[in-house]
Design a protein around this nucleic acid. Structure first.
Lengths: 137, 137
DNA sequence: CAGGATCCGATCCGATACTG
DNA sequence: CAGTATCGGATCGGATCCTG
């Protein structure tokens, strides 16, 4: 029963394939849901980058995390790593075609975020005011 | 090392707004990038659910995590929680309109995952074979 | 420059016990 | 049924030091 509100109930059209429990959503999040991956991918969407260049472009990331992040992206086939045996060493990172396809998904996330950021922030303020000291965040 | 088509470079068209560092992507991931949120949302996309019903529908989730997950979703305005003061207590959870809009994004994630799952798995196998004992995963 | 190795605190999450 | 409270292990990520 609808509770007065709009409740258009426009047919889910969502979820996975019916009664199937999980789609591949968790797999995507396991891959890019960490703290830095999407930021690195977004920067690489601009073009080829070297290691230090990436680190400067992603404020706050440590060498350790940049290394780990870029290694995982390479392992998944989203990023191509090219080493030039020069002195000092030079390493270039760039998105693969699969990496580029991912940026379309990131664009969709950015759009959704922009569209609902205000509403979410407002909902949080309301909820926090109604539930003081709940410990939730 | 080029795999198939190399560098079509179809113009990023991606990223955020130019030189702007971060879009809202990280905000989205901070919200639904945790272990259980998307699974709960996907289940709620099917319709109204009670607490135990949700827990049974999402295999492996503990009461604690279900409570925390559903509370955060409620706080963000993605889920509406309705309490019926009966004995035993009855609580219903359902997606808000904003929650339903999120399912479209989840659909996009599921589609991308399905389209690239094989390629990613293959890339991992190749990488793991070429980098034994790297510790990366 | 581009990392590898190590230490360590913060956080996440599962298991368990208890409550109205 | 629908939670709350507490404990502890596992993982994540930051800081630092070292190397070719």
């Amino acid at each position: 029963m609808s509770v007065g509100h709009t409740a258009v109930t426009t047919e889910p059209l969502v979820s996975c394939g019916g009664e199937h429990e999980d789609c591949g959503i968790r797999e995507v999040l396991d891959r890019i849901g960490d703290k830095w991956s999407v930021l690195v991918v977004v920067e690489l969407a601009q073009g080829v980058r070297r290691f230090r260049q990436l680190q400067r472009a992603v404020p706050g990331i440590s060498q350790r995390m940049l290394t780990l992040t870029v290694r995982r992206l390479e392992r998944d086939g989203l990023v191509r790593r090219t080493v030039y045996p020069t002195i000092p060493p030079q390493v270039e990172y760039e998105l693969t075609s699969m990496g580029h396809s991912l940026t379309h998904l990131l664009k969709a996330m950015a759009d959704w975020s922009a569209a609902h950021r205000e509403a979410i922030a407002a909902s949080r303020r309301t909820w926090d005011a109604a539930n003081p000291g709940s410990g939730i965040r």
